[in-house]
Simulated scan of single mutants.
Amino acid sequence: MSRSSFALAACLLVGQLCGAQGEAHATERSLHGLDLDYVAPAECPSREQFDAMLRARLPDEATTKDTRHFLARITPDEAGGYVGRLDVRGPGLAPDVREIHAPTCRAVSTSLVLFVVLALTPASQAEHEPERTSPAPPPPSPPTTEPAPLPTRSSSDETRSYTHAAKPAATWSWSAGFQATYQHMSEAAWGGRVHAELTRVPALGPLGASLRLSYGWSDFSTFPVRAGEAKFRLRTGRLEGCARVALGSFALSPCAAFELGSLDGRTPALSATEMSTLWAAPGVRLRLGWQTSAWLALEVEAGLSMPLERRVFQITDPIRTVYEPPAVVVDLGAGLGVSGRFR
């Protein structure tokens, strides 16, 4: 084979490889350049499934020049279904908010995909539409009297009236539940706690706030010298103010708390020996909740409390110490709760 024939065959081979690579790239559908956030519960379609549905409905490269921010959010509603919101914002543009209610999360996510396509299609068509040349003027005709044309409504006016939706509003939720608790009071103390909580859920963004009121109790025992068993019960009411960060179907809540109640003790072996003191303790807490359905949630938490007064419990004849509270009380809790939403 001559040198020129070899060069020609090499060029043909490189051309075929480049053409095959270009065809494979041309068949890819991507969301490159689109600023889109998608937030939904765990039971809803994933981000990958949402992107796949969006790619199937958008023309190629329809998102590369759109500078707006798209936020698609799905949340459960009080009726057992789901509500979806699409918020589109951009510099110098009025907010564009659309909302859909449906009994299934799949139906809501499909509607949000259509909302995104509707928001993107007018802009992409304007960018890729070729310039239209005006037709040649018709030959002159005798003047005639014609009625004035009626005003028509342009497509931009229709789009403008469609996209001016109501601004999203924050919602409120309530919850009530029970926790099994453990406290390290120098001795192991076991008990329970019931609570009620009010939470503000923002329309946009993951950060909310909540207020929780609870009542709890815990029991433990000590065994002082020549006194048998000393039994103690701590009963407190607790007020908590919390920040709430939503992470899909999970929520993380750091809280500041204050407890007020009583610590009571008695020694059954020594009749008529009873002791009681005021319990007041500020503290901090961290709670993790998992919303398993529209109305049921599981949660775990940990906390520290610092009693303002640490009274020493003693008995006489002879004087001996029965119990002294620690400077810091560590407690853990796990339980479940029911919840609902309202505006």
Results as ranks from 00 to 15, higher is better:
S2E: 09
R3Y: 15
S4I: 14
V14W: 14
V14Y: 11
Q16D: 11
C18D: 14
H25G: 13
A26I: 01
E28K: 13
L31W: 05
L34R: 04
P41M: 06
C44E: 02
P45I: 00
S46P: 04
R47C: 01
Q49T: 13
E61P: 00
K65E: 14
F70A: 04
T75Q: 13
G80F: 04
Y82S: 10
Y82R: 04
V83W: 07
G84C: 00
R85N: 00
L93S: 10
V97G: 07
I100V: 15
T104A: 06
C105Y: 03
A107Q: 10
V108K: 02
S109W: 02
L112D: 05
L120V: 10
Q125Y: 13
A126E: 11
P130I: 00
T133Q: 13
S134P: 09
P140H: 05
P140Y: 07
S141L: 08
P151F: 03
S154Y: 00
S155E: 15
S156Y: 00
E158F: 09
T159R: 11
R160M: 10
S161D: 15
K167R: 15
A169G: 09
S175W: 02
G177I: 01
A180W: 11
A189S: 01
A189N: 02
R200A: 03
R200I: 05
P206H: 05
S210C: 04
L211Y: 07
R212Q: 11
G216A: 00
S221W: 02
F223V: 15
F232R: 04
R233T: 10
L234P: 09
C242H: 02
V245W: 15
P254T: 01
P254C: 03
L260I: 13
S262H: 14
P268C: 01
L270I: 13
T273K: 02
T273E: 13
L278W: 11
A280L: 10
P282Y: 07
G283T: 01
G283V: 01
R285S: 12
R287M: 07
R287E: 12
L288E: 10
Q291K: 05
Q291R: 12
T292D: 01
T292K: 00
L296I: 09
L298A: 03
V300C: 11
A302T: 09
G303N: 10
M306G: 10
R310A: 08
R310W: 02
V312K: 11
T316L: 08
I319E: 13
R320P: 05
R320W: 03
Y323S: 08
P325E: 00
V330R: 10
G335K: 05
G335I: 00
L336D: 06
G337S: 10
R343K: 12
